[in-house]
């Protein structure tokens, strides 16, 4: 389903040099599999998600999703691919303030292939328990509610892979629990492969499969050890 091979990502540094952030020989996720990725701050977790989402391009290696080699696609191709295949939940939700909850969810399918199935946005909103808040703006929602809207939005485009970047970091423990259950349950129902970044070990322990970035990443092991 998702296959990462010999992935290398360098960033140019303020001093002009370049810093190798990621060097991952191998990482694969099966269809419908749920994986927790833990790692230190600055370890490159977000960078990895951006690479998988096609928001960044790797310097070496390949990322295959459903047989498509992301690194071979043009930027436009990656945009289109992302719209149809990838859902993304951000640590900071990133809801658009000008739009209502429902519209934010709809935005999740606006840029895709255009197969806006009836009331999927409304269904998703009620699935995250916010049917009554459909016409609220993000500023009128609690933090937990905002994150639930963001989850609904990430699933709106019927993705095959859901990338979640510390989705529980900004919500209280009870909400975190709800958010987590919500993501896991929905992904299971829709057979969506899910990669969740977290540094909360408690949350990671809920996953069948947990990977440490430092184990996957050759950069992490070498630099951290020295």
């Amino acid at each position: 389903m998702l296959q990462v091979t010999n992935l290398v990502k360098n960033f140019s540094q303020p001093d002009g040099g370049s810093l190798k952030v990621l060097d991952i020989p191998n990482l694969s996720i099966e269809e419908g599999e749920q994986l927790a990725l833990i790692g230190q701050s600055g370890g490159g977790k977000t960078t990895l998600l951006h690479l998988i989402a096609g928001l960044l391009t790797p310097d070496e290696g390949s990322i295959r999703i459903n047989g498509t080699n992301l690194t071979r696609l043009s930027e436009q191709g990656r945009d289109r691919f992302r719209a149809g295949t990838i859902g993304y939940v951000f640590q900071t939700f990133n809801l658009l303030p000008a739009f209502t909850a429902l519209e934010n969810v709809r935005l999740g399918m606006t840029f895709g292939s255009g197969k806006a199935e009836g009331d999927r946005a409304r269904d998703l909103l009620s699935r995250v328990g916010l049917a009554e808040r459909a016409n609220y703006r993000p500023s009128q929602l609690s933090v937990g509610q905002q994150q639930r809207v963001a989850i609904a939005r990430s699933l709106a485009g019927s993705p095959r892979v859901l990338l979640a970047d510390e989705p529980t970091a900004n919500v209280d423990p009870v909400s975190a629990e709800n958010v987590l259950n919500l993501i896991c349950d929905t992904c299971r129902e829709e057979k969506v492969a899910m990669l969740m970044v977290t540094h909360d070990l408690q949350i990671a322990s809920r996953f069948q499969r947990v990977e440490k970035l430092s184990d996957l990443n050759q950069v992490g092991s070498s630099t951290n050890d020295s």
């Binding site: 989402a53 930027e75 436009q76 945009d79 992302r82 719209a83 951000f90 658009l96 840029f111 485009g157």
Partner: peptide, 16 residues
Amino acid sequence: KRDIAVMRALGARRVT
């Protein structure tokens, strides 16, 4: 800028 980045992450193209 953030809104634009979010839309891009949701699959919007640069042209969009």
